[in-house]
C-alpha cells in the first residue's frame, strides 16, 4: 500500500474565494487593455491568471486522485467559468478568454521549460525532431517534443501570418477543437480548417528543418 498525502496548500476548495476584489479589478482592466492590443500587459495578466490555472489544476488533482489528466481545454474552460462567474467581469465572450488563456498557457509553459533546462544545463530534457522514426512512440512519453522549438516556430509564423498562427496556438496550447476556434476567432469553419492545415504542415516542416540543423551543429 502506498502512502498518499495531500499538501494543505492543494486543498483550497471551490468554495473558497480565489482572488480578492482588487485582483478582479486588475484583471478586468488588464484584459481590456490586452484586448485593445496592448501586449505589454501580458506579464501582469500572466501573474494574475496563472494562480487561477494552477489552483484549478490542483483541484483536479484532488478530485481525481492520482489518475491525473490535465487537459488544457478543461483547464481553460474551468478558469473561464470561475473568472466569468464573478461579478464585474465585462467580457462575457468565452472566445476572448480562450485567446488570452492560450497565450498565457503557452508563455507559462515555455518559461517553465526554459527554467528547467537551465537548471539541468540543458542536459536532461530530450528533444526529438518530428522526422524521428520513433516520434509517435516518444511523444506519448510526455515532454519529449521540443516545445521550445515549437514555440519559436509559432512565433516565426505569427510574424508573417498572425491569423494562421493564432489558430495553431489555440489548437496546440489551449487544446481547442476546430469548432471552438471558429467561435473564438470569429472565422468561418472552412477558413479555420485551412489555416490549421497550413499551420500544421508549416510547423511540422519548420520543426524538422530546425531539428536537422541542430543535429548538424551538435
Amino acid at each position: 500500500m502506498i502512502a498518499r498525502s495531500d499538501s494543505p496548500s492543494c486543498t483550497t476548495g471551490g468554495s473558497k474565494p480565489l482572488m480578492n476584489v482588487s485582483a478582479d479589478k486588475d484583471i478586468t482592466a488588464l484584459l481590456k487593455r490586452w484586448k485593445d492590443g496592448d501586449r505589454a500587459v501580458e506579464n501582469q495578466l500572466a501573474n494574475l491568471i496563472y494562480p487561477v490555472l494552477r489552483d484549478i489544476a490542483a483541484g483536479q488533482v484532488r478530485r481525481r486522485g492520482s489518475q491525473l489528466t490535465l487537459r488544457p481545454t478543461e483547464l481553460v474552460n474551468e478558469a473561464y467559468e470561475r473568472i466569468a462567474g464573478q461579478k464585474d467581469v465585462p467580457w462575457q465572450n468565452r472566445a476572448h478568454f480562450y485567446a488570452i488563456a492560450a497565450t498565457l498557457i503557452r508563455r507559462v509553459l515555455i518559461d517553465h521549460i526554459r527554467q528547467r533546462m537551465t537548471e539541468k544545463h540543458g542536459g536532461d530534457v530530450r528533444f526529438v525532431g518530428l522526422d524521428h522514426p520513433d516520434c509517435e512512440a516518444l511523444v506519448g512519453a510526455g515532454n519529449l517534443v521540443d516545445w521550445l522549438a515549437l514555440d519559436q516556430s509559432l512565433s516565426r509564423l505569427a510574424a508573417a501570418h498572425p491569423a494562421v498562427a493564432r489558430v495553431a496556438e489555440l489548437r496546440l496550447f489551449a487544446g481547442l477543437e476546430i469548432d471552438e476556434i471558429v467561435t473564438s476567432c470569429e472565422l468561418s469553419r472552412a477558413t479555420v480548417g485551412r489555416h490549421w492545415r497550413f499551420a500544421r504542415a508549416w510547423l511540422s516542416a519548420d520543426l524538422s528543418a530546425t531539428a536537422t540543423v541542430a543535429d548538424q551543429q551538435g
Binding site: 494552477r54 491525473l68 490535465l70 488544457p72 517553465h112
Partner: peptide, 10 residues
C-alpha cells in the same frame, strides 16, 4: 501538452 502542463502547474 498534458505532461508538460502537469509538470508546470501544481
Amino acid at each position: 501538452l498534458e505532461a508538460v502542463l502537469r509538470d508546470a502547474m501544481p
